[in-house]
Nucleic acid binder design. Structure first.
Length: 315
DNA sequence: CGTTGTTCCCGCCATT
DNA sequence: AGAATGGCGGGAACAA
């Protein structure tokens, strides 16, 4: 933390990793606020922060979060930049929220990587750092051990995504539940959801209604033809609308939803893999295994072995 | 793991 | 002119 950090993004990280939810089955995290010793960085809106640890502590952290900064044109303190670089070289996962991408970019960490930022800032980011592959259309994006997210609330999506990757979907859902937010945004693989730019309302309604319909009956063998019929348009225009609002194609979205559902069942139930395949709409265990492995990098059985029962049995 | 049949989906284009 | 629609073809992805 240094002068000019944004309150909300700072609070998002503090809320996700700074609150003890071990009683609810969430692993214990240690939140460490690093800054120049003795300083009282202004966060704006009348708030100040008291960083209790020096910047050098960053090298000991598994995960380093850079909240957004109020003024993207302000120069970033040099000691913060070098601290981030050494933390990066030490193998820490780096995360920027909103305009925090400018801090990572200034440190040269985003060079050659995919990145995003608040939609108002992406043009400036791309202009100032041509070596960064800026993607203005995603809520968040990761490249190697470096993650960046779009404006404000997208930071929550990214933080939950990181929890889900490290600790499983059930833990992420539990954190989301105590934060009273959605575990992942409507539309599935949040990483690939388009930013909430100006979208035609009737168009997104059409897709959201369909999402609700499908999620209500995931076991149904949905086809694109059927989905298009539900939306009362031809298959061709249906596909176009779907891609525009969701940034994924219909089948890909469906498969992602099914994998997500299977993930939850593996973690929270003792149903056999075959039963889960049936419930989640995969035609066979083979099909489930193939898509599951492709999405998560490990087969269902192994996934269950590492994540089953991580969460309290209060539901 | 390879084969076979089916579905998807993206570019192209005429039409609205 | 410009934008959206919907049909078609075929290579790619998927299911059996």
């Amino acid at each position: 933390v240094f002068d000019g950090m944004l309150v909300f993004e700072y609070a998002v990280a503090a809320e996700v990793w700074g609150i003890d939810r071990t009683a609810r089955g969430v692993p214990a995290f240690e939140l460490v606020v690093c800054g120049r010793p003795g300083t009282r960085p202004r966060l704006g809106q009348g708030l100040m922060c008291l960083p209790e640890h020096p910047l050098s502590t960053l090298t000991e952290c598994d995960l380093v979060v850079v909240p957004g900064i109020a003024d993207i044109h302000a120069s970033v303190p040099a000691d913060a930049l070098t601290a981030l670089q050494t933390a990066h070289e030490a193998g820490a996962t780096l995360v920027s929220l909103c305009s925090g991408a400018f801090v990572l970019a200034a440190a040269g960490i985003l060079d050659g990587r995919k990145a995003t930022a608040h939609w108002l800032d992406v043009d400036e980011l791309a202009r100032r750092y041509p070596a960064v592959a800026v993607d203005p259309k995603v809520l968040f994006v990761g490249d190697g051990s470096v993650w960046t997210s779009a404006g404000t609330a997208a930071g929550i999506d990214l933080c939950l995504h990181l929890i889900r990757e490290d600790h499983g979907a059930a833990v992420a859902a539990e954190v989301a539940r105590t934060m009273v937010t959605a575990p992942f945004r409507n539309g599935g693989q949040a990483q690939f959801i388009t930013t909430p730019g100006p979208v035609d309302n009737t168009e997104s309604d059409m897709v959201t209604d369909l999402h609700a319909r499908i999620l209500a009956d995931p076991a149904h063998p949905w086809t694109v033809t059927e989905m298009a019929a539900f939306a009362h348009v031809s298959e061709r225009t249906f596909a176009r609308h779907f891609v525009r609002t969701t940034n994924t194609t219909p089948l890909q979205w469906l498969l992602t939803q099914r994998v997500l559902a299977a993930q939850q069942l593996l973690e929270t139930s003792d149903l056999s893999v075959a039963a889960i395949a049936r419930r989640t709409g995969f035609g066979s265990t083979l099909s489930l295994r193939q898509h599951f492995t492709r999405h998560l990098g490990l087969p269902p059985r192994d996934y269950r072995a590492t994540f089953r029962g991580r969460i309290g049995s209060d539901r």
